[in-house]
Structures are given as structure tokens and as C-alpha cells.
């Protein structure tokens, strides 16, 4: 079998596995781990979208090769509480003791005989939003306010069609579109941006990853 450059995000059958919503998510979290020297002895599993993260989670719990550790990273989007509830509903057959709401520090949960379960809801387990918001917090070189103004002008001219929950995504990709070279794939574009890993959100996320997988 030929190995593709995205094979590393298809390691869904590992004993320790991290489920993510998409390719960008995988790239950003991988870079975060590299920058912070977090041991990535777990498999990245790109599930393509949020529903498939939940399906994959259930399938792994039900399946004949149950992992030892499962982490999931989902976007809160427009309702963080609803998102967390979805996770509870999907795992209710297995986990009986999940806390009723998610902590600011993310969830690392163990229950007898079941895989250790980690849940992180982007951006920070508290606010609505998505991974891009988390990323822009750390990418302090990106002048998000300025780019947002530009986007607003485009909106006023009715040149845009993105959904409201994707505003940060639009900001991020607008920024990348202005760099050399504009068509760089995300994984090489993000490698050119320094992240400020001393931000509180970075520290919290790092602790969550380490607690879950190490």
C-alpha cells in the first residue's frame, strides 16, 4: 500500500487514539504537540466532521478492539452545553459516571473496565466557538481585529457567504492567503507562524493532553 502524506491522521485503530473533526484540527494539534514537546504516542484519527467523531467514538467503544485511551476534540460551535450533552448521550451505554458539565480544564475520565476518556471542547471548554478561535489566541502575530475589519467590508459588499460560526476560520484562512505563498496547504502555512504557548489556554490544553495520554 502506498503511504500518503495524510496517513498519520488515519491511525484510528491505535490503543491510544485522539479523534478530531478534520484535517486542519489534526495539523494544528500535531504542531501544538511538537512545539510543546508532548509525546505523541497516540494515533491521530481524522473523522472528517463532528458527527463522525461521535460515531467513531461509539464504534470504538462497541468494537472488538476497544482502545485503552480515547481522546476527542470537538468544536463547541454555537452551543457548548448541547455539544457536551451529545457526548454524554453517545456514551451513556458505557460511561455511567460522567460529570454533568465539562470543566474548564477539559475532561479526563476513568471508569472501571472502560477506556480512559478525554474530552476537550474547543476553544476552551467554556465558550462557544471552534478550534480556530483557540488557534488565533495563540497566533499572536495575526492581527485578527484588522483582518476581521477587512472581512466586514467584504460582507457589506455582499461578497461573502460563510456561516456565522465560521468567522474565525475565515480570519485564519484570510491571513494565510496573504502570506507567501498564498496557496500553501494548511500544514505548511501553520508551520510558519509562531505560537505563544505561554498563554493560559495553551497551558491548560497541554496539561489535558499530558494527563490523558501519559
Amino acid at each position: 500500500m502506498s503511504s500518503k502524506s495524510t496517513d498519520w491522521m488515519k491511525r484510528c485503530g491505535e490503543k491510544s487514539v485522539l479523534l478530531l473533526e478534520g484535517k486542519s484540527d489534526c495539523n494544528i494539534v500535531k504542531k501544538f504537540c511538537e512545539d510543546n514537546e508532548i509525546n505523541t504516542q497516540f494515533g491521530f484519527c481524522n473523522c472528517e466532521n463532528d458527527n463522525q467523531v461521535l460515531s467513531q467514538l461509539n464504534a470504538l467503544l462497541q468494537g472488538s478492539n476497544q482502545p485503552e485511551i480515547i481522546g476527542i476534540i470537538l468544536d463547541a460551535d454555537n452551543d457548548i452545553n448541547a455539544r457536551y450533552q451529545e457526548i454524554i448521550n453517545k456514551t451513556t451505554k458505557f460511561y455511567k459516571k460522567l460529570p454533568s458539565s465539562i470543566l474548564k480544564t477539559g475532561l479526563v475520565h476513568t471508569e472501571n473496565g472502560l477506556p480512559k476518556l478525554g474530552v476537550w471542547i474547543m476553544p476552551n471548554n467554556q465558550d462557544n466557538g471552534a478550534l480556530e478561535k483557540f488557534y488565533l489566541e495563540l497566533a499572536t502575530d495575526i492581527d485578527t481585529a484588522f483582518i476581521n475589519d477587512v472581512i466586514k467590508r467584504a460582507e457589506n459588499k455582499k461578497l461573502t457567504s460563510f456561516k456565522s460560526q465560521h468567522r474565525n476560520k475565515a480570519i485564519m484562512h484570510t491571513y494565510f492567503a496573504w502570506q507567501d505563498s498564498p496557496s500553501d496547504p494548511l500544514h505548511s502555512a501553520i508551520n510558519k507562524i509562531a505560537l505563544d504557548n505561554s498563554q493560559e489556554i495553551a497551558t491548560t490544553f497541554k496539561i489535558w493532553l499530558v494527563q490523558l495520554f501519559n
Binding site: 463522525q52 467513531q56 464504534a59 462497541q62 468494537g63
Partner: peptide, 8 residues
């Protein structure tokens, strides 16, 4: 869920 994610 298992079929859509190709899980054994």
C-alpha cells in the same frame, strides 16, 4: 456508526 467509520 461502525460501518460509517469502518470500525471492526
Amino acid at each position: 456508526d461502525a460501518l460509517s467509520t469502518n470500525t471492526e
